[in-house]
Amino acid sequence: MKCNKLVDTGRRQFLRGGVLGAAGVAAGAVLPASQAKAQARAMVDYPSNRLANLADLTLNEPMDITYPDAESPGVLLKLGTRVEGGAGPDGDVVAFSVLCPHKGYNMSYHAADKTLNCPGHFSRFDCEAGGQQVWGHATQNLPQFSLRIDDAGDIFAEGADELIYGRLSNVLES
């Protein structure tokens, strides 16, 4: 429940536009390491941002993060079971956007079945199946952040595999 409250706090502040405040509420949330900028190249250039260290993660407790910038809330998880696309020595570390791709509500984590659930219209996504929509109204599965973990155990996010709600470029461009 603690985690749900954290995410919920983040949601309320996020909807008010207080995104930096929202990010600051959560332990372990970090500001982007480098400012993203527009690129006149075919692909979006994602920043490589340190999210946390493996030692910071508690089994099946969500850690609030933001990626690729402070306005895009997400969650970092150590699931405890090896999953396709999972990072780390146990292949069980994953990170997702927590903005529901349906209408942009901030979702909460349900630890009992490792899903993210939307309070807006009740969609839910499976964190153990690449963010697959278990049931709901979104027309895409949940954006998952690709992770790299270095020798020191620092976890870096380096990309996303679906368009994040509320932005027509995953890396905001001016």
């Binding site: 979104a138 932005r167 905001l172």
Partner: peptide, 18 residues
């Protein structure tokens, strides 16, 4: 201003499926 994040229920976003 689409250089800024748009919030829940926005009319100023569309999904790739659209």
């Amino acid at each position: 201003d689409l250089s800024q994040q748009q919030y829940a229920e926005t009319d100023a976003w569309y999904a790739p499926s659209m």
